[in-house]
Design a protein around this nucleic acid. Structure first.
Length: 282
DNA sequence: CAACCGACCTGTTCGC
DNA sequence: TGCGAACAGGTCGGTT
């Protein structure tokens, strides 16, 4: 469910709510939510741990604890964090992990589909270093993107979903970025021209940045909600995602849906023409 | 690499 | 109304 913008907004919210707080204790209600270490060690290490920072890398929430421990949280499809008020234990029935905070509130990790995972580690970089570049970092330039695209023979949309290629882009923003760049989702990644690489870079960066400004995308099913129950607003700005048959905001042709890698892709066949699908060997 | 599959899970929507 | 199929914002591991 959440992609880079949603995870960024959640991490900022958790940071503002939890910085400097400590965990009194933790209760693990679904053992497999804990990827590492084992549940007993996870529980023991959490006792009294102080939260020193909350940031994001790719789709991971990175919670720095005192004594050099870090909790990495990946929400996958349906994970959510909730911070509950002191006297309002509005327990989410999908709570998988529950912490008590030293101010009386609780932090809940809720996850209907049980795909989400929490990792407690002293060397989170082992995991995070496997991710591709951060698309909103200064180092992610059009030239750097072009370099990574070189000789890649797969379809560009599928490549954008590969977290080793670039971190944080998911199914919504891959379609949106390609629409902004006016690039067909089935283009061979390594076949993009210099101007197309420029446009793709701008499309990825602008769509992610704008989605963060809008507080993320909360589709009709409201899977994505912030730790305080708020929703994002970017769904109103989506050009093509989940809009099959609707008019393209740029040219009014109907938005199409195709399947790539067993996942839906939305695009405008008029604005995003399939051409030049020959790999460059620069 | 790439294409494809199943696995991991539960809930909602859609077609008949 | 009921019921099964299809689908959902993600990723991993395995096979060909």
């Amino acid at each position: 469910m959440p992609e880079l913008p949603e995870v960024e907004v959640i991490a900022r919210k958790l940071r503002s709510e939890l910085l400097g707080r400590s965990f009194v204790d933790v209760e693990v209600l679904w053992a497999r939510s804990i990827a590492a270490p084992d549940v007993a060690a996870f529980v023991a290490l959490m006792q009294g741990a102080r939260i020193d920072d909350v940031t994001r890398r790719g789709k991971y929430i990175v919670m720095r604890l005192a004594d050099d421990w870090t909790m990495l949280a990946h929400l996958r499809m349906s994970g959510k964090f909730r911070v509950s008020a002191p006297l309002a234990p509005a327990e989410d029935s999908y709570a998988r992990v529950r912490w008590r905070l030293d101010d009386g509130r609780s932090l809940l990790f809720c996850d209907p589909r049980k795909f989400g995972r929490l990792h407690l580690s002293r060397s989170p970089e082992t995991l995070l270093d496997k991710l591709g570049p951060e698309p909103l970092a200064d180092a992610f330039t059009p030239a750097a993107l072009g370099e990574r695209l070189r000789n890649r023979r797969g379809e560009i949309k599928r490549l954008l979903l590969d977290q080793h290629f670039v971190a944080g882009v998911g199914n919504i923003y891959a379609s949106e970025a390609l629409w902004r760049a006016q690039i067909h989702p089935q283009r061979v990644a390594g076949s993009l021209s210099e101007p197309e690489v420029q446009r793709l870079h701008a499309g990825v960066v602008s769509t992610l940045a704008q989605a963060i400004e809008h507080g993320g995308t909360s589709l009709a099913d409201r899977q994505y909600v912030l730790p305080d129950g708020e929703t994002g607003q970017h769904q109103e700005a989506l050009a093509v995602y989940a809009r099959e048959g609707d008019p393209c905001p740029r040219c009014a042709a109907p938005v199409l849906r195709i399947v790539q890698g067993q996942r839906s892709t939305y695009f405008c066949a008029t604005c995003q023409v399939l051409k030049g699908n020959v790999p460059h060997h620069r």
